[in-house]
C-alpha cells in the first residue's frame, strides 16, 4: 500500500503497540491483561506495519515467526517444570521476591508462563498471516 500517511503512522505505531503490550503483559497476573491479550496487541502492531510495507516486513522483525513459537513453547515448558523439579505437581506456581532498597518485585513462574503465551501468540499469528500474505503476494 502506497499511502505516505499510512506508512509513517505504521512506522511510529509499531513500537507504541509493543511497549503497551509489554505493559499489559506485566500487569496481567492481578489485573486485567495477560499473555494472550498482550500477544494479540504486539502482533497487531507488527501486522499493521507489515500490511503497509509488504509481507517481507514480517520476516524482518526481530525474530522469525517460527522462533517466536519455539521461544514461547520453551517458556511455557520451563514454567511448568520449575515447580515440577522442586518436587511439586506440574505447573505449580513458584514465587520469589526480589528486594532492592526502594521497591520490591515479586517474580514467579506464572509470569514466565504468560510470557510463553505472549511469544506463542505472536509467533502463531505472524505465521498464519505471513503464509497467507505470501500466498496472495501482498505488496
Amino acid at each position: 500500500m502506497n499511502s505516505i500517511i499510512l506508512k509513517i503512522t505504521a512506522k511510529y505505531l509499531k513500537p507504541v503497540f509493543i511497549v503497551f503490550s509489554i505493559y499489559v503483559l506485566l500487569r496481567g497476573h492481578n489485573s486485567p491483561g495477560g499473555g494472550f491479550i498482550a500477544g494479540l496487541l504486539a502482533s497487531s502492531g507488527i501486522l499493521f506495519y507489515s500490511l503497509t510495507y509488504g509481507s517481507d516486513a514480517i520476516n524482518q522483525t526481530y525474530l522469525k515467526p517460527k522462533s517466536f513459537i519455539i521461544l514461547g513453547l520453551v517458556g511455557i515448558l520451563l514454567s511448568a517444570t520449575i515447580g515440577f523439579l522442586a518436587s511439586k505437581p506440574l505447573l505449580t506456581g513458584v514465587w520469589h521476591t526480589f528486594k532492592t532498597g526502594l521497591f520490591e518485585v515479586k517474580v514467579g513462574t506464572p509470569l514466565l508462563f504468560d510470557s510463553g503465551v505472549y511469544f506463542l501468540v505472536i509467533g502463531s499469528l505472524l505465521t498464519i498471516t505471513s503464509s497467507i500474505m505470501e500466498e496472495i503476494e501482498w505488496k
Binding site: 517460527k66 519455539i70 513453547l73 520453551v74 515448558l77 511448568a80 515440577f84 506440574l90
Partner: peptide, 12 residues
C-alpha cells in the same frame, strides 16, 4: 511431558 519436550526440540 515427553511429547511436550520433544516438540520444541524437533522444531529447532
Amino acid at each position: 511431558l515427553i511429547p511436550l519436550i520433544a516438540i520444541p526440540i524437533l522444531l529447532v
